[in-house]
Nucleic acid binder design. Sequence first.
DNA 1: TTGCAATTCAAACAGTTGTATGAAACTATC
DNA 2: GATAGTTTCATACAACTGTTTGAATTGCAA
Lengths: 230, 230
Amino acid sequence: MSSDRTRSAILAAAERLYADRGFGDVTLRDIVAEANVNLAAVNYHFGSKDELIAELFVTRSLATNRERLNELKAAEETGGGRAPIDAILHALVGPTLRGCLGPDREGSTAARFMIRASIESVPPIRRIKNREVDHLRKFIAAMRRAMPGRDDADLYWGLHFALAMAHHTIREKERLTKLSEGQCDLNDVDAIVDRVVSVSVTALTGGETPAKKAPVRPAVPHGRLTRQDL
Amino acid sequence: MSSDRTRSAILAAAERLYADRGFGDVTLRDIVAEANVNLAAVNYHFGSKDELIAELFVTRSLATNRERLNELKAAEETGGGRAPIDAILHALVGPTLRGCLGPDREGSTAARFMIRASIESVPPIRRIKNREVDHLRKFIAAMRRAMPGRDDADLYWGLHFALAMAHHTIREKERLTKLSEGQCDLNDVDAIVDRVVSVSVTALTGGETPAKKAPVRPAVPHGRLTRQDL
DNA sequence: TTGCAATTCAAACAGTTGTATGAAACTATC
DNA sequence: GATAGTTTCATACAACTGTTTGAATTGCAA
């Protein structure tokens, strides 16, 4: 049935190069050189460059989603069909954060690739992410069971903010390290997961839907630029 | 002094096209066609394509930062040199959210451009964003004054999460609308700002950082994909 | 007007990109 | 070992990219 050697070599080389140098900087010729295969092999095995990228991302993405659902299921079985809200959110953000951060993952090509995918967001990957909605709905359903009284909109916002904190931490881990001058430990993944979950839970259980005391502030018109010092 | 007409036309056309179609899809030839100027004008007036993009982003970015600092200053003056934490966070995320979301901003080219810049993150823009650290430090300083007891790391995490929620809401507003089937109102910007601030404040004032145990999971190698159903 | 600099313009440049082709090499089956 | 199907390979293709060039044009000052 034909050795998958070429196919696998392309996948591995592509993931490594994309992880190291980003999508914008890596051409098919770079990939086939790294993989020691012929240029035409990519189109033969994957159809197109975009399909290669899509396959790389789908593979990693499916793995994360599988982990998420496993953790969710385990929590629900423990709780007799109803998992507590913190366990649900833990199942949601844990696999993503563990997959991309952490000292053991430093050298992991898969992790670095997923960080790139999170930062650069190239078209074939964006297309796949848009299909993630169905997967997230399962977590909304679980959250609804855990907090029957809560408004649906609050649940959506809670899930949205949990993902926001997780993904933004992955995307901006470099900047946060620099900003905090090392005081935020980006290697202690478990602590980060707990922090994200904790904030998300208090966001969901805490204060009622925001009161309407929005202060008014002046609008600032555009001026003309002279200095470039952002 | 030579009319700025060509220069301005290029800026306007570029911002409009980038806002509509993204950075990856727009070439210099598209821009000069839209602006009705000669192709060489871009390099003549801006030096390079990247410098054009940088100038576009810096302009909008400076405006946002100016708004932020104005709001912060106003809050500090009201509080006699010490602004309350919610006002600080409001000054941080308010201008960004108002700049990119809201019904009045629907047709705003600047808003749509900044959303694009937030999503696609092209090299010249990334370079500028990396210089944003100094600007954020001013907010950390204000937060330190507002919460003298708090650990610095907690402050960094709080600011980081506030920005996470704001930016992720901008980046994923389409998806959140779809996921929530319209139950999350992305047009009520003030409500969104209040929600983000509220969550951030409870994150900062609320519970201590917990510690827990974490399970270990296996690395997932690449296999052959048959179904593409993420 | 003359002179000079700033600006515009058409055209070409030099390089890269993803993809297609058709022949060659391989592999497994009968 | 001939055959049919799969996989590899060198090469070419066609299109697009940002940038440069050098001549024309414009605008302003003396």
